[in-house]
């Protein structure tokens, strides 16, 4: 059999098995916690109880399998610490996903809507919305996601704008944190952190260097590390076995491909 011309469907089968088998028979690899993930954890750990953070779900549904575990871990930690949460979303598909996630965790953590957390929902013109939140949260969002007047929430009575917000966390699969940095960060001086998909990590590393971004975690690997810091198993950790075996499978495939290529070339 000529390995260089192998039907690509065999490769698909190998990849699928490399993903499915570790999910069915987990071995529990998590790995080291990288300094970046530690920084993010320390950042939230250092916030005083009762502080308020904005968590913005700036992602599309298609990438939720990767970015969801990141969001889960961050929301869970924030609620463990007794930190209040204001939720927003600047991409239409992230809106429903964020609401569902926050309500689920709020039930588990006995968070009272309106007092401990509020979900404001979607705004299409994100630059204007990010700037608007700096002036007045209730003016930018007169009503929250479930159509209740924002003025009625005690949380928004105390937290008027970025001045009263300890941290903004953007959960993003694209370049949205850049707008948070450029508008909320640069203009109003609020601290920004980001939970990203792995592809976006290279894009935002320069901002971490320059201090415009306080912390970032990326991808399923970042989620797994964070779950380890929280001392639990989650989608991130569960995925790590599959991620490792799939990476190895691809690496082995690449090596086989090269061996086949050089042998074929040697012959001809």
């Amino acid at each position: 059999m000529n390995l260089a011309q192998i039907d690509r469907r065999w490769i698909f089968v190998i990849v699928f098995l490399a993903v499915a088998l570790p999910l069915l028979f987990p071995i529990g690899l998590v790995g080291e916690v990288s300094p970046r993930t530690q920084t993010m954890h320390d950042l939230i750990e250092a916030l005083p109880r009762g502080a308020t953070v904005i968590i913005s779900f700036d992602c599309e549904a298609a990438s939720w399998p990767e970015i969801g575990p990141v969001a889960e871990a961050l929301v869970e930690h924030t609620m463990q610490r007794g930190i209040r949460i204001i939720g927003t979303s600047f991409l239409s598909e992230g809106t429903a996903l964020g609401f569902e996630l926050l309500s689920r965790h709020a039930d588990a953590a006995d968070y009272v809507q309106g007092r401990d957390w509020v979900y404001l929902g979607f705004r299409p013109q994100y630059v204007a919305a990010i700037l608007g939140l700096g002036e007045s949260i209730t003016q930018e969002y007169p009503r929250d996601y479930i159509n209740q007047p924002s003025e009625d929430h005690t949380l928004l009575g105390a937290v008027r704008s970025y001045r009263d917000v300890a941290l903004v966390i953007s959960i993003a699969d694209d370049t949205m944190p850049q707008y948070w940095i450029e508008y909320a960060g640069a203009r109003y001086g609020v601290k920004i952190a980001a939970g990203l998909s792995a592809v976006m990590v290279t894009t935002f590393t320069p901002y971490l260097d320059s201090g415009q971004l306080q912390a970032l975690i990326g991808g399923l690997k970042g989620a797994a590390e964070y779950e380890r810091l929280l001392g639990r198993e989650g989608a991130g950790s569960r995925g790590m076995d599959a991620q490792s075996s799939a990476h190895l499978a691809i690496i082995v495939l690449v090596i086989i491909g090269n061996v086949a290529y050089f042998r074929g070339r040697g012959r001809s």
């Binding site: 993903v19 399998p65 990767e66 792995a198 991808g219 399923l220 989608a235 599959a242 991620q243």
Partner: peptide, 10 residues
């Protein structure tokens, strides 16, 4: 590759 595999895992 890392990102895309995460999606398949999901």
């Amino acid at each position: 590759i890392m990102s895309r595999l995460s999606l398949l895992i999901g």
